[in-house]
Design a protein around this nucleic acid. Structure first.
Lengths: 264, 264
DNA sequence: GCTTGACCTTGACGCTGGGTCAGGGTTGCA
DNA sequence: TGCAACCCTGACCCAGCGTCAAGGTCAAGC
């Protein structure tokens, strides 16, 4: 008669494993001797080896019992199923390998390469670091929501960067990073932004947005802007005074009807 | 300000996942509002997307924090490490696929093909099913302990099967499957076995065992024999009377010196 | 007879990455 | 005012054991 340790060593597994198989009902609990020790016969070794043969071939323990009792046809069907699972797991790891290799190859985290090029160009052109960061983070958010739009949109942005006057305006927006809410540069900047938007709007009257972005995303990007710049809230107020609302997607303010006292 | 559900949906994960990341310290716990709800800013979405980017590339959560904070060099080293793990996992599944395919191709469980051929031949020759089974189980045990020995040894056993007189003896051993301990066929069979072993021993005087088997394994195989046949114990006794001990590996009995009364 | 070390016993927690209740409070809209 | 849709914490669940804790048992050596 064998003790659990002997059984385990014959089958090349640990004692814990044997007990685990008992608990799972894979291997029947044997008789106990007078002191409560489990005592096994040779047949238990055979059973255990058969279980390990399946387990070592990637069969989940939950299916081992079924396979041990299966006839040929059931066995082949079950094996088919398990093989499918194995292939799926392999494909998964392979796609993981590809993704992680791309990350290591220099993609900044969560950023498509076009965006990396864009923020690099911003740095070259001397944009304030804070502005570059908010831009990068914004694109992380955009890429997460609508990855297919990033490519064409990015091309447009890059072109804007190379436009002298626009770039100068945008460079100055970077000064927001050290403007408090009362900074005298804010109204000046708001004027320039409003003028630019007005010109753009005039030039594109009736033209739909090229890059339709959900309200939610716009709100999120505006929030990111506000979180990043201390002067951002004041800037939004100044733009409202000038008839514009929002930042990410600046629009003409629709004048909300002020309720008359009579209506209250 | 975002609720946890909004944050989760921006990042394409479940609420449970966000809370899990809080618990693991991957994502900092945000402020709570007056009713205890978590309130997130846009920066949290960015962080969460970055975490998911790594997780989706197969980075274990336990290493995500490290990678988010890593410089380029550390990042590449960590990625190398993770890629190694992924490759190892892929190799593992591939070997699982091969093994399970072999099992489905007809290998009886845990049996090398030579052994399958051997037990099939036993059935063809009309051996008792019980004997075939104990033979098969014995080979499962042997293959588990010393797989490399199975091939050559099996060749020898197959040759023995084709030896007329030996086969007849072995066929009759199969009758043990319905012999009680007092069956009159037992002494006759024991005589025949003893005679055969004697002859074999005479022919191989001084020759070492071709197939050295550990004492433990021999004991295990003997135990399997005893478990399978009700008459096995009696058979062993009869062989002892004839000067032999054991079954799997029958040897001349070394006569233990009987203690004289004077010595007690 | 006593000690020591190697076994054995049950019970419980740990790992991964969340899923899925349970039992309760909050918010927002009709 | 009610209802659906959120939110909260706490807890158990999956696989396949590893590992510790706290205690009982066995064989051997002194």
């Amino acid at each position: 008669m064998l003790t659990i340790g002997q059984l385990a060593s014959y089958a090349g597994v640990t004692v814990r494993t044997v007990r685990h198989y008992h608990a799972k009902g894979l291997l029947p609990e044997p008789e106990r001797d007078h002191s409560g020790y489990r005592r096994y016969g040779a047949a238990a070794v055979v059973e255990l080896v058969r279980i390990r043969t399946l387990a070592d071939a990637g069969v989940p323990l939950s299916r081992v019992r079924e396979l041990l009792a299966a006839d040929d046809e059931e066995f082949v069907a079950a094996v088919d199923d398990i093989d499918r699972r194995l292939r799926a797991e392999i494909r998964e790891r392979q796609s993981h390998r590809e993704r992680i290799a791309k990350l290591a190859a220099g993609d900044s985290l969560a950023l498509p390469p076009e965006v990396v090029a864009y923020v690099d160009r911003m740095r070259e052109l001397g944009f304030r670091e804070r502005l570059v960061e908010i831009e990068r983070d914004s694109w992380i958010l955009i890429a997460a929501q609508m990855p297919e739009q990033v490519g064409p949109w990015m091309a447009m942005k890059r072109a804007q960067l190379e436009d002298e006057s626009l770039r100068r305006l945008y460079l100055d927006v970077g000064e927001l990073s050290d403007c408090g809410p009362e900074d005298p540069r804010l109204p000046v900047l708001a004027d320039r932004v409003a003028a630019f938007i007005q010109a753009a709007a005039d030039g594109a009257e009736g033209v739909e947005d090229e890059h339709p972005v959900s309200e939610d995303l716009v709100a999120l990007l505006d929030a990111a802007f506000v979180e990043s710049f201390p002067g951002a809230v004041r800037m939004l107020e100044l733009l409202e005074e000038r008839g514009w609302t929002g930042w990410t997607n600046i629009r003409r303010k629709t004048v909300a009807p002020v309720p008359c006292e009579a209506e209250l």
